[in-house]
Structures are given as structure tokens and as C-alpha cells.
Design a protein around this nucleic acid. Structure first.
Lengths: 354, 354
DNA sequence: GGCCGTGTTCTGAACGATCAAATCGGCCAT
DNA sequence: ATGGCCGATTTGATCGTTCAGAACACGGCC
């Protein structure tokens, strides 16, 4: 890129064409269909584009091609499903992935699901976006139903919970595989009684994580009875649930948690009993939030590869936007277990008496 | 709004005009300059607009008016300054505020400050955005310098740290007022030795929060010597710094922290010494992150009114976009101290022996 | 009756790009 | 020499809106 002077006036195709002594269309082709140009013409065109710092006016291009190159995303006021730090990572990744496909992300707010649908309607009618990315699907989701009915282009980060047959394309992280991996890891560390701390039934995401624990514990032929504790998300809940589990006649030595908040509380409960997280009781959280690194001992946690999810989502959406007839794809991505001291023993071979 | 059928084809001004038996421009005026129309014509136009579900094509409007009605915002991969949960709240508020002014938010990613500047350049050349919102300014910020030099429309959430005279318009939260309020509150609770846990010097935001503590403690004629501890942000650091403070001959009974992470670690250190946070040692965090509510006892924390900051930011930006000659404004917003058990005593009158 | 002002509505042009079709020039086969 | 073909380039039309100015209708006033 040669030095370019910044000017407030728009550099138009016309101006670049004059500068290169060719026609408008030739400059347009240099950018959109370079194979059509003779090598030297292309070089001359590119040189002119570069030296004037030309970028096509997005509005003009959108008007003519009727595509805004924008992906709509509704940002929600921190709810369950995808939360806080994870949402940040996802959004960032979404923007990057979109960028690589020549898109930008248009953010909009809406107070509730109904308003959100109005938002979709408005943006589409204004032709302000080409399609949508949705995060945090939930059972009986009115938004996906509305979009799917009309055959609009959108991909969700999150499965269509509770539908027999997927009504739309989606990308999701296999939460069950995550909790199952956590169980496997704890078994490897010598634990036999492995409990689950999760959210109340009915939340899709929470049930999924619970099912992974159940499946893995059964696969290892370990006990499950009385080892699943559930409550609203939060550090306090984690503390309370773990404390209750420890009061059993044969308390668990492994704790798989549906969130880092629950895990953080559980670690507190471990310490309260004079035990050491990691050495005596293995604790694994979920989502690998910043606290997991910051806490001591470091908290093992299941990390959602949201970057990969975002990349896949954008790929699917771009494909759908290029060709409206593609079949709705479904992609399940396996999460990564990040192992830290909270679940590792200095001597893993030593099996504790239960 | 009457029932409207969703169609994939664009409803144009032309179509609405035919339907209402008026000309294009009349419909346009019905939306943009209703005062120009005779009451009955306006009614007829509105009826036609409504029954066809017409919304002006954004691209066409942008092309003609050369304004995209988009505010650019670069999302950063979690850094210091504005972080995680706070960023979410800010983004959400930004979208809502933008919406009220008829704008949407365009999100884009950039790996570093240099790439970010390229991003600004690109978006402006493409006329894809009208202006920018920036969050997380830092001393010697190349981005704001670049934008300011060219007189481009942007407002930052964050002061121009380390500049003698502000080179651009900004909105910020008065962190010093926040830590000062925390000190006042702890004094009210009967504490006399009040320490500060913060980040290493040089971070603008961190120094600001430190200065508020210093100012307030001095105003109360309380000791400061050996009571400021600094280290990288994190729960572990908070624990270590607090522990060190407690080992002094006359340890502090009040802790004002630059972040909830530090405060969380400090609370752990309090418990480790067999003391009770709240009753024996008052702890106050910063940013009122979700953990502050979730932890036990609940952590008092200084809450940044980012919603208000976003509203103000958008107002300033909208003003600037409407009239390029307005003087750059500077708005400092006072934060709120959220008091929870971690800093309150059942008997505040009882002054502890120091 | 003609003129003027005011309020309302309509017409043509423009924003800056891409699409579709026309044009140009060179080359080869007839 | 002529026609056909092909690749490279240009021309005119178009996307849907807003702007600027023209046209129109209606009263009031001299």
C-alpha cells in the first residue's frame, strides 16, 4: 500500500477510472472480476485504486447488488445460556470470521423475544442485513420459529432444544461430551464417587451437561445415586450444594460442575471442610471463564471452542446466503477440557478410600 | 400496526405511492417531513405505508443522504480497561441508545491497534459507518490520535490519559470518585486503617482509582503509609497482596480494591486469618461483576453506570454527526457504590482497636 | 379580473456502484 | 477480401431513495 492522502470527499469509481484512463467498469472488474482484465490493464487499474485509496461505496454497492454484507446479531442483556466472558469471545470470533468472508456484524438490542422479532422484521424490511446469527436458543424458541417459517437466512449457536426434527441450521458445542470428558479425567485421577453440580432441569444447556455426566459415570460403572445436585447458577449455590453432598455418609471426591460459578462455590466448600481442592477433591468447572485462571488453585474447566463455533456459523451462513437452496446443516463441536490444579493430584495412582 | 404479509420482494416507495394514489415524494415526506403534508394526505400515506409494511431501503437512503446510520465499534479481545461483563453491559446499552437515535452498531474485530486503525480507515472509505465509539483508551493511544488528527467523528468511553489538553470528546466514569466513596463508606463503618489494592502504576484507569483512595484517606486525615499494594489483576494477586498487608504490625481493617478479582482474593485472605469479611474487615471491589452478587458474603462494589455512559456517548456522537462544528465535550460520570455485607458491620458504631 | 403569496404536491436529477449488452480490435478460416 | 469468433473494454440502464425546484390550487387584495 503506497502512501495515501486521506480526504473527506468520496473517491468514486469515476475518479479512479479517469486516473487510470480506463472506464468505470474496468476498475469495477479489477476488484470483482480481475480475470477479465488484460494483465497490464489490471496492473494500471490496481495502481490507480491504490494511489487514490479507493474503496467502493458500500451503500451504492448494496443498492445495486441488494446485499448489505452485514450479519445481524441481537445482543442480549446477560441471560443464561451463553454468558459474559464467553459471549465476548464469541462476538469477537464472529466478527473476525465474518470479516474473512467480507461481512461485518450489525448489533442490535431488544428487551425481549417479541421485540427481538420486531427487530428482525425491521432490519429485513429495510434490507439492512443479509442474515442473522443467533446465540442462546432455548426450548420453545419463538424467534427461531418465526425466522424458520419465513425461510429467512439464519444460523443459531445452540441447538433447537426440544424439537424432534431440527427446523433450521445450527452450530453447537457438545456440552455432554464436555462433562463426560471431565468425568473420564477425574476417573483417571483415581476418583470413584463423582458428583454433578448443575442447574434446575428444563434449560436445554443444563440438561445436556447433566446427561454427559450421567452417561460417563454409568459407562465407568460408578454410582450416580444422590450424586446429582441442582440449583440456580451462582457461587453461593455451588457452596451450598457441595456442602450438602459432603454431608452424605459416603461423600463424593470428584465434582463436575455446569459452570465456573458453581465450581468456585464448590471449591470454597472443599476448603471449609479442611480438604484441598485437587489433592483431596477433584473439581471441574465449565466455560473456562477468567476466574478459573485467576483463582488458586487454578480451576480445571471445560472450554467451549466458541471461536471454532463462530467460524463454522459464518461459513454456513455465507453458504446459505450464496445459495438459498442448501440443506440446513447441523454441526456439533467437541469442547476442550482445560486441566488445572483443582482436579490433579501429585500422586494420581493413589486411590482414596471412599 | 395492522397485519402485514411478509414478502421477500422489496416494497418500494413507488409501490406505496401507487397504493395511496400520490407521488413518491409525498410518501417520503410522510416519513421524513410529515408537517409538510395536509392532514388527510398524511393519513392516507400512513395507511398505505402501514398496510404494505413499508420500510425505506437502507442502502438507497444511505446512498442518497450519504449517511449509513451506523456507529462503528471495535470489539477487543478482553484486555484491561473495560472488561468482560462490563463490556457486555456497555455494548447492550450502546445498541439501545443508538437505536433511540436511529442508529445501529457495526461491530468489527482487529488484532491490535495498528489493525484497528486500518479498520477505521477502511470503514470510512467505504462510507460504511458515520462515526465511531471507542472503549478502553490508554496512555499514548495511537487510535485516538489518528482519528483526532483527521477530525473524524468519534467519542471515547475513557479519558485521553496523559494528555495535557483533551484532543477529542469523551465520556468516562470517575473511578477516583468511586474509590473515594468506598473510603468514605468504610470510614462511616468505623474503619481507620484503609488500604488500597490495585494494579501496577501506568494504566490510567488503575492510577485514577488509586488517586481517589489517596485523596479520600488524606481528607479523613488517616494513614496511607504502607497501605497501597499493587500487582497484576487477579484473584491470586488479591490474596497475596492482602496477606502481605495483614502481616504488618498494624494491619488495615478496610480494603478498597481496584477490581472484583482483587477483592475476591482479598476476601479469601481475610477468611484465612480467621476473620470475617464485613464484620472484622471491610472489603470493597470495583465493577460490580456477577461474582460480587454470587459470592458469600456479598461483595460491596463500585458500579460503573455504563448504561448512562453509553447514552451520553451516543448523544454526543449524534450531535457531532449532525453538526461537525460542535466543540468536543467531556463528560465525567459519578459511579455508584453498591453496598453489600462484605463492608457492613452489624454494629457500625463499634470502632475497632487498631 | 389579474396578481401575488402560501401551502401542498409532483417531476426530474442525482447519489455511486453493478449488470447486461454493445462495441472494438485482432485473428483465423473460408 | 470477407465473415465469424473471441477476448477485452466501454456504454447505457438500473437499484430506491432524497433533494431542489417546478407546478398547481386556493384565497385575499387591489
Amino acid at each position: 500500500m503506497s502512501e495515501r492522502v486521506y480526504t473527506r470527499e468520496q473517491v468514486t469509481l469515476e475518479a479512479v477510472a479517469r486516473h487510470a484512463r480506463v472506464s468505470r467498469q474496468t476498475i469495477s472488474n479489477a476488484l470483482n472480476a480481475p480475470h477479465r482484465l488484460a494483465p497490464d490493464t489490471l496492473a494500471r487499474a490496481k495502481q490507480a485504486i491504490d494511489s487514490l485509496g479507493y474503496r467502493p461505496n458500500q451503500a451504492a454497492r448494496s443498492l445495486r447488488t441488494s446485499s448489505s454484507q452485514l450479519i445481524g446479531f441481537r445482543i442480549e442483556p446477560t441471560r443464561d445460556g451463553i454468558n459474559g466472558a464467553v459471549l465476548d469471545r464469541f462476538l469477537h470470533a464472529l466478527c473476525e470470521a465474518a470479516d474473512r468472508h467480507g461481512y461485518n456484524v450489525l448489533l442490535f438490542a431488544a428487551a425481549d423475544d417479541a421485540k427481538e422479532i420486531e427487530g428482525y422484521d425491521d432490519l429485513l424490511r429495510r434490507r439492512a442485513v443479509d442474515g442473522f446469527a443467533l446465540a442462546g436458543t432455548h426450548p420453545g424458541d419463538a424467534r427461531t420459529a418465526w425466522l424458520a417459517e419465513r425461510g429467512l437466512p439464519f444460523i443459531t449457536f445452540g441447538r433447537p432444544w426440544g424439537e424432534r426434527r431440527a427446523s433450521h441450521a445450527w452450530v453447537d458445542v457438545d456440552g455432554a461430551a464436555g462433562t463426560a470428558a471431565a468425568v473420564d479425567h477425574l476417573v483417571e485421577q483415581g476418583h470413584r464417587r463423582i458428583a454433578f453440580l448443575g442447574w434446575p432441569a428444563g434449560s436445554g444447556v443444563g440438561d445436556d451437561r447433566h446427561s454427559g455426566w450421567l452417561r460417563a459415570v454409568r459407562a465407568h460403572q460408578l454410582p450416580t445415586r444422590g450424586l446429582a445436585a441442582r440449583g440456580e447458577d451462582g457461587v453461593t449455590t455451588g457452596h451450598a450444594l457441595a456442602t450438602r453432598l459432603f454431608q452424605q455418609s459416603s461423600p463424593p471426591t470428584g465434582l463436575v460442575c455446569a459452570s465456573d460459578s458453581l465450581a468456585l462455590g464448590a471449591m470454597g466448600a472443599v476448603t471449609d471442610r479442611g480438604l484441598a481442592a485437587g489433592e483431596d477433591v477433584g473439581v471441574v468447572g465449565f466455560d473456562d471463564t477468567p476466574v478459573a485462571v485467576a483463582v488458586s488453585p487454578g480451576l480445571s474447566s471445560v472450554r467451549q471452542p466458541v471461536e471454532q463455533a463462530a467460524v463454522t456459523l459464518v461459513e454456513l451462513l455465507a453458504e446459505r446466503l450464496a445459495d438459498a437452496t442448501v440443506a440446513p446443516a447441523e454441526k456439533l463441536i467437541a469442547p476442550d477440557l482445560i486441566v488445572r490444579p483443582s482436579s490433579t493430584r501429585s500422586t494420581p495412582s493413589l486411590v482414596p478410600s471412599s
